[in-house]
Design a protein around this nucleic acid. Sequence first.
DNA 1: CCCTTAAGAAACGCAACGTATCTTAAAGGT
DNA 2: ACCTTTAAGATACGTTGCGTTTCTTAAGGG
Lengths: 199, 199
Amino acid sequence: MTETKSRRRGAELEQAILDAAWAELNDVGYAALTIEAVAARAGTSKPVIYRRWPGRAELVLAAWARQRPKPVPATDMGSLRADLIALFNRIARRAEGMMSEVVAGVMGEAFRHPEVAEILRERLRTAPLGDWVNGIVERAVERGELPPVTVPPRAARMPIDLIRNETMMSGGPITETDIAEFVDDVYLPLLRGLAASPG
Amino acid sequence: MTETKSRRRGAELEQAILDAAWAELNDVGYAALTIEAVAARAGTSKPVIYRRWPGRAELVLAAWARQRPKPVPATDMGSLRADLIALFNRIARRAEGMMSEVVAGVMGEAFRHPEVAEILRERLRTAPLGDWVNGIVERAVERGELPPVTVPPRAARMPIDLIRNETMMSGGPITETDIAEFVDDVYLPLLRGLAASPG
DNA sequence: CCCTTAAGAAACGCAACGTATCTTAAAGGT
DNA sequence: ACCTTTAAGATACGTTGCGTTTCTTAAGGG
């Protein structure tokens, strides 16, 4: 009971609401999340929330935005293949959990609310996957595993899109086997093909 | 007023309901589709629907399943690149429209109802993209555009997953430019890489 | 022709929506 | 220290759609 019984305002209150929304997301997920429950959890009332966000999607996206993405460290595993597997594994782990349900849920509403779609796209576009892939490829070139090669943005962005798709479609976690298969059957061949035909 | 005023039963009634659900999907989309509206449109009542399907997702999936997918004709455009662009374009056109909203909407519920997720996955897995890609690749090999190559299932499945992802994320239609970029920057390099490293 | 089955109509309680009203606490200026 | 503005919080509202229950009655098979 460290509660100040006093009445919160402005930023302080806003943080409390977003925290409550985040906690609620973790507890019941997006589909079952209600504004009333968030209000109750934050110790406030519905109108206070509706004064700030138009609806559930915007509230959730705001709560999500507050969670700072933990950086994906670029570990040198010694080989191109191992580096790729490690990177995609880290991306997959991050995509699992609640994220995919939130993304799927928000996407369902995004078709009716274009501005929500825009926020969601913005949020998902941030990941600098291109940089990570390029770093790994550069190391591979230095090692002599690969001829010099430039990876087009589309090719760099591809894995994260596929992993997100797979996570949402399968529901369950993506196994290391899946990722190894993807690396061996798709991404390594692609990199070799890019290296062969000069861009 | 061609209405038989009589009381429909069994299969006949079921078809009418599924037709109504499909029409409703086209009119208001998945998010706004209600069982009551479908019942009204079919000229029946809610319990009749609930006796057959547990909820909205199952009803919609059943209605969707009734729409037979028009076959994607394999047109020979004269070159590997043109064949791929044509194929991916046809897939993209098919994925647009209501489909992506339905997929997104159903996916949002799928996390709470694993059996729905399974039906959805089943539905999306049917497309024999692998065959089409292999057909195109074989023609390219015959033309001498490509060394003999076997395309792993994962590599064959990849475009349709990416196109679906892109359709849902962007909301709008996928342009021919997007597809050409994908073919030039990703898929052709991948095929060349697969051809280079024997599987 | 009867008897089983299921369609259809109506109403239910429930949950959450989004809004409106009103009181009262907080913040800030003078 | 007071007074004014702002907004928090409580409460209640009407609405919608849910999924279910009850009951009547039409259809179809034996």
